[in-house]
Nucleic acid binder design. Structure first.
Lengths: 210, 210
DNA sequence: TGAACAAGCACATGTTTATGTGATTGGCAG
DNA sequence: CTGCCAATCACATAAACATGTGCTTGTTCA
């Protein structure tokens, strides 16, 4: 028996969902609320397996509710429920530990399936949501390393620059003279098309050279 | 009519899938192959809407095939097909522009649904796969901003430092004297616990302060 | 075998940073 | 109303950095 809790401000939808879920074999609705103002206590009291959480609610909204729950409980599965697949909320929900993200227009049979998926450790997602998540994901990991043809030695120097070393410290760290450090760095600047230490450091981070 | 291509080394499964998909209303299988050795030409020739791509294949495997296709075509939807939901492959597939990732044990009806989802721009995923993607995602975005209590003005200065401005340039950019820039920066160093420009820049990136 | 290049070193000069000390103004909380 | 703090400016000094020119050595590749 999967124990479900429901947060949804619209009374009709809340009733409808409760009846659907509670009336299905293997599911029971412990309680439902119209906002997340006391979400921490409520979740602690009922100890549900899965929480269906609307995003747009008056008072404490779904994202805030999610954060509050995750602050005290990382076990319970939380399924975000929303009308739109808007980018910002998806991102916020994902990074705050939501287990799934489904649209309200999801047909009843599917919704039950999603709840089961979530309860058993999966992360059910409407295909359109998943598409956005993947897009964000590949954006993050799309830093086409331009390489810049830095030599091994130059990479070492750059690494030390990034770690906040001065020329003098780099020299002693690498057992070379400070003048050699200078010439390495001049070369690095040429290759990266910059002309100061901090620009080089910034570029190293931006292009994930290290 | 959704035009599908199939890459799968197992002859039985290849035949089975072809019959399933081709025999369903609204779907047609243009061609199927047992590996990706000539994937580029084949895809160019058939111009499918969706490609079902097995991961484990002799010769050019599914990930390699994915890369090859994406090198010349970013339009066609590619659905990865696999036995296991193993971490490494999911990651590789996602970052190389796969549109979805489903397990082979997916029931036939669902598979057709997934193909439709993909064709219409969604990113169908088995719940267990989605779970992994979310896990990776939240790992990446878990840099708990320590904040450091930088004032507005200090944040502006830090931003300009990161952008490679010198004190002089910052002064003229912000319409303040270079000495004021100095005192702001000294304050920033105190708050960030660093003592050089490049360390501050590095910390700004590491902690995603900007 | 000779050009190209990475790595190392040296010296010189001017600019930028880092740090200290000190002062004025205006807003805000106790 | 008074002390606290952000924001502003000033002056001074030492250290660090940026840039130029020039040289040696060793490897690699055509």
């Amino acid at each position: 028996m999967i124990k479900v809790m429901l947060y949804e401000d619209n009374p009709q939808l809340r009733e409808g969902l409760t009846m659907l879920i509670d009336g299905s074999d293997g599911f029971t609705v412990l309680a439902s609320y119209k906002n997340c103002d006391n979400v921490t206590d409520e979740v602690e009291a009922w100890k549900p397996d899965v929480i269906l959480m609307d995003i747009d609610m008056p008072g404490t909204n779904g994202i805030e509710g999610l954060k509050k729950i995750r602050a005290v409980n990382s076990e319970v599965k939380i399924l975000m429920l929303t009308v739109f697949d808007d980018n910002k909320n998806v991102f916020e929900a994902v990074r705050n530990g939501a287990n799934g993200y489904v649209l309200k227009k999801t047909p009843p049979a599917k919704l039950l399936e999603y709840i089961e998926d979530a309860a058993s450790g999966g992360a059910p997602m409407t295909a359109s949501i998943a598409s956005q998540v993947l897009k964000m994901f590949s954006q993050i990991n799309t830093s086409q390393n331009e390489d810049y043809n830095l030599s091994e030695r130059e990479k070492q120097v750059l690494q030390l620059l990034v770690d906040g070393y001065s020329y003098k410290m780099i020299a002693s760290e690498m057992f070379i003279s400070i003048d050699t450090v200078r010439s390495h760095i001049k070369k690095i600047y040429e290759k990266l098309h910059v002309n100061s230490k901090s620009e080089a450091v910034a570029k190293a981070f931006k292009d994930k050279l290290l």
